[in-house]
Write a protein that binds this DNA or RNA. Structure first.
Lengths: 350, 350
DNA sequence: AGAAGAAATGTCAGCGCTGTCAATCCAGCC
DNA sequence: GGCTGGATTGACAGCGCTGACATTTCTTCT
């Protein structure tokens, strides 16, 4: 009895499956691709053979023959803590459609962004891409994608486009609710810390804040609306300025949790008691929101869901039509407010 | 004058480049793959044609013909804030070698982990994988990879293996330094908060702590060594227990920043002044480290570099040899201590 | 039963590239 | 010049699959 050492044992091919199940290769192909026009019994037989042989179709061959790639690109500029959650959601959804996700960092400000992107797209023959902010707003990116005829899904872009679907959240409504929570607790002098101007969320969150203030007939003190650029460090400076303003605001609405954490730090340094003397709300429910004391009242960003929905749109895209349907779909993912210890009743003497 | 609309204009193929430069397809292939045995002048001519035609080789075709995939897999279990940094480093390095990175979540505890992994590997024909903890320690993962003959790089695994290269950091030395910083400031009653048992870092950091204590002739109070499982919530419980212990520790060494943040929160709730009454150190230099007040003294984790080095090992892997060289390479990336406001001199009355 | 049409299945070329091996070129040497 | 051997280059098949189209096998209806 002889044994053949075969560490690189060649995996079963479609032809082997065909032989095993007594049909032609083409029929096996039909089964794999879930094409119609295969008798149920035949399909079952083929499926059984696939199982027995533990057959896995060769992606490269499928791609080459069918002029596809089964690859979706996820492009991002700044890696942030939300990225890994987002991509996890996107990958999961992609797998359901037998697609794979390639993640690609892409410097928005890089001079050869176009070349880089173009190389990537054409080498990989990406079937679609997901653009995390702020990439969805770069004309250079859209031009390159259009030239290569690759459909894109935009995540919370500043400006919606007719030719590209968008996934976003209703930040304005959430900001309204959040502001409402402060107003309900008697706050009137509320400072608002804006985010980075290049993000859609920056404007939307401010508008929601303004909506709520107006609805309650409360004036906004322009001196108490400043930008912290979504960053902790700048938020710290900003909060210091706000807290040294007189009369002092009784609450700070920070456009994200990093800046809210900064506001908490600033208050801490001024020995203000939270939430007795100052209420703070953030946005995003970032990890830091529950890592400081008091924990931040904020709005949970359904990041994983966003990733899933984005992948969903790409999967559903019908390439036989010319481009996306007009107008391109837009999906809104609901946002959820989370009340935690960082807000309280406005101080009486304020 | 007529214009032909050609949105899906077929990209140049290798054959076109060959015709253009007056050589055979095979020679163009040689140039693309940087194979030797091509006269410099010929190479230049081909390169010029590639440029002019803006030719991009088709990955799927190269893969099919050459039995490669140009794909590296990055597997992770828990998405964390470090993941996106890591993958950014890894992607960058991969691109330098014309490889692409596929990221794949993989539930360590999932019952069909093997099946899932196996499907992925064989469909994509991954050329190598990077295993983030704790995946590098799962026998099921190694078995599957070995069966498919796919080389793996382990990131900071609990147990090194002879057959797989490892990238890690010298946590023990860093923990020693960090403990030294506390001892220098007069601290003697130092509590130590351990991490998740499944991580190599947990043990290493404790050993470094113990090294330093022993070197200074300071006894470790066993009651002050407890586990917070690397998580904020558990860290909070743990810190409360530690701070209610009498005599109270004057410093807490938390095995990661999340738990250190928890220690700060706990101290805050007990109205302890930081760092006057309590010093806290963390580990990792996570975002939260600079988002709380006082900012955490910690050790910076060179995450992006780790990603780059991991990809480097995979790229350098020589598949013509049988497996990795014995013993497989191990790369240590240096760690850097960062002193911030969370530590101070031990209280005199302690 | 037989024809017509729909449904199911098969044949075959070829996607764009690389491995194998054969053909050609050229320098160096007698 | 003619020969030899290494350096270049080319011809061609085929990687594993799917598209287009041909063929066969059912249904259904008269």
């Amino acid at each position: 009895m002889r044994r053949v050492v075969d560490s690189g044992r060649s995996p079963a091919t479609l032809a082997v499956v065909a032989a095993r199940s007594g049909v032609s290769a083409k029929t096996v192909s039909r089964v794999i691709n879930n094409e119609p026009g295969v008798r149920a019994e035949t399909r079952a037989r083929v499926l059984a053979a696939i199982q027995q042989l533990d057959y896995q179709p060769n992606l490269a061959a499928r791609g080459l023959a069918g002029d596809r790639s089964f690859l979706i690109g996820l492009f991002y500029d700044q890696p942030g803590d939300y990225l890994s959650e987002f991509q996890t959601g996107a990958v999961q959804r992609c797998h359901e459609s037998n697609l794979h996700l390639m993640i690609e960092p892409l410097e928005a400000s890089s001079p050869d962004l176009r070349r880089h992107l173009s190389t990537l797209i054409r080498q990989l023959r990406l079937e679609g891409v997901i653009l995390l902010p702020p990439l969805g707003d770069l004309p250079a990116v859209h031009a390159t994608l259009a030239a290569a005829d690759v459909p894109a899904v935009l995540i919370a872009p500043m400006h919606a486009r007719l030719d590209a679907p968008v996934v976003d959240t209703d930040d304005r409504a959430a900001a309204r609710d959040l502001t409402g929570a402060l107003l309900e607790r008697g706050h009137r002098r509320i400072a608002f810390m804006r985010g980075r101007p290049s993000h859609r969320a920056t404007e939307q969150r401010y508008l929601g804040f303004a909506d709520a203030m107006r609805a309650h007939g409360v004036d906004i003190d322009a001196a108490l609306v400043q930008s912290g650029n979504f960053e902790f460090a700048e938020g710290l400076e900003c909060a210091r300025r706000m807290l040294s303003h007189r009369p002092r605001p009784t609450a700070i609405f920070a456009s994200n949790d990093d800046m809210a954490a900064a506001a908490v730090s600033a208050a801490r340094q001024l020995s203000l008691a939270l939430p007795e003397q100052l209420s703070v709300v953030g946005f995003d429910d970032a990890p830091v929101a529950t890592m400081i004391w008091p924990q931040l009242t904020t709005v949970r960003q359904p990041v994983r869901t966003l990733g899933r929905v984005a992948a969903d749109l790409i999967s559903e895209y019908q390439p036989h039509r010319h481009g996306w349907p007009q107008p391109a779909p837009r999906r809104r993912v609901p946002l959820e407010m989370i009340i935690r210890g960082s807000i309280g009743t406005a101080p009486a003497d304020a």
